[in-house]
Design a protein around this nucleic acid. Structure first.
Lengths: 248, 248
DNA sequence: TTAAAATACGCAAAAAAGTGCAACATAAAG
DNA sequence: CTTTATGTTGCACTTTTTTGCGTATTTTAA
């Protein structure tokens, strides 16, 4: 079995079972565990899998673990600081969910007068603590995973809004595939929010750049601004800038 | 099971049940309690969970626990325990706001299957953490004081509901004046909720009995059940029982 | 205060991973 | 065809990681 062939087999196994053991792979392919380890190391280096003691985990399985760690907290704060500069007094703002958005809510300057539409419970809790912000909650069924409103009623309500700007915390952004997500209901909400806003801002930590999930939310062309914790001229952002999206 | 995989499992369990026991996890995953403790320590170190004696708590649970005052905490807990007995599988429940209601949400038995309609952000946060409860949020403008939805849109939505039971945390209850409140917008919401339910349950600590506020919400005759922390035959409750309201 | 439960700590065994090296294959260049 | 350069693989060895156990300590609840 060729090296390339072997690695593709491993990748399929990982994505199928969400985890593989070095020992199992070694036995299945009939090569030494050293070789398997070397393969896993290579696959992990290009970001296709996550290495772990005893084997490896699939990327999608692992994301939740990494993304809500304390490491990314500072990054999200720095993203939030950039984002609040886009907000001006009197604006009508559509706000999605996610921890990055929650940071945005915390970072609002005290004297700001703006109206926030959101379907995210954690975000709403933060917005409502702001001294002057007006908060409109978009009601409907609440998703247990993401703690945001989902469902047709919510989409209808969003469609009635004509917001100045929309902030979306996003899970995956790829130069080719654009904005993607893994939850069909959430995708519908995000699409509705994008339609209901004059300007769309995507907030994301750099780890989520160049990653893909299963369901399409929007093309890059539908985004106006991408905000990450990186400097705007970082090479990782090059393909997105080339697509005509403004980078902050 | 790989270490990382195990920690992901633990993290999911914590976020689902709000608390986990070291002993349960040890048995479920089939590793020693030492190993579980080490995992919990690592997860706590990166801020993903809150460690506690005997197990760990979810981060959100811990924070919401801290936010509420402790003055009448025990009384409200005892009220909540009485109230959950009224809830049965499959019920549609309208739920107001207030710390007593939040306690009710925390006291729900794990296996309960019910649908909760609410316009209270803190209550929704609690309901959504329950493993099986369905949560429908009634959206509209959020009041800064009470953190519940107010406004005509919400009232209209409530009118479309036909709930089995309605739980109201109340601010003032008087044998003559009935249920009163000081916030006009909140009063409209409460009235709508009472209209939309077959059975109305008022939850209150005894300090609020025999007090009045400025705006009338409902007559005593519109209430079906009053729950306080007192024993049902307490003399303070006599006038309410005489008005034909059931006391728990 | 006291007994039981839970935890921290040190330690040792087992498993897994990293390291250097030699064997082998492959392909390009002479 | 031979030689050389390159890359791949397996092996012996060391190092690191992980785990469970015994013991001492702390925490909890009565």
């Amino acid at each position: 079995m060729l090296k390339r062939e072997r690695q593709e087999f491993i990748l399929r196994e990982v994505n199928l079972h969400n985890r593989v053991l070095t020992s199992d792979l070694s036995e299945a392919i009939n090569v030494s565990e050293d070789t398997i380890r070397r393969d896993l190391a290579e696959l992990a280096e290009t970001g296709k899998i996550i290495k772990a003691h005893g084997g490896a985990l699939s990327k999608s399985f692992h994301t939740s673990f990494q993304i809500n760690g304390v490491y990314s907290h500072d990054k999200k704060k720095s993203i939030a600081r950039k984002a609040v500069n886009l907000i001006q007094d009197g604006m009508f703002i559509l706000s999605g969910g996610g921890t990055t958005i929650t940071e945005l809510a915390k970072a609002l300057p005290d004297q700001l007068q703006a109206t926030f539409f959101t379907g995210s419970l954690p975000a709403a809790i933060e917005y409502i603590q702001h001294p002057t912000a007006e908060v409109i909650f978009i009601g409907d069924r609440i998703s247990k995973n993401s703690r945001i409103t989902i469902g047709g009623d919510a989409i209808q309500k969003i469609a009635q809004i004509n917001a100045d700007i929309c902030f979306l915390g996003i899970n995956a952004l790829d130069p080719e595939l654009g904005l993607t997500d893994n939850d069909w209901e959430v995708v519908q909400i995000k699409k509705a929010m994008i339609r209901a806003s004059r300007k769309v801002v995507a907030l994301t930590i750099s780890e989520k750049l160049n990653t893909q999930q299963k369901i399409k939310v929007a093309d890059l062309s539908e985004l106006d601004i991408i905000i990450t914790e990186l400097a705007p001229d970082d090479p990782k952002l090059e393909p997105f800038r080339n697509a005509g999206v403004q980078i902050l």
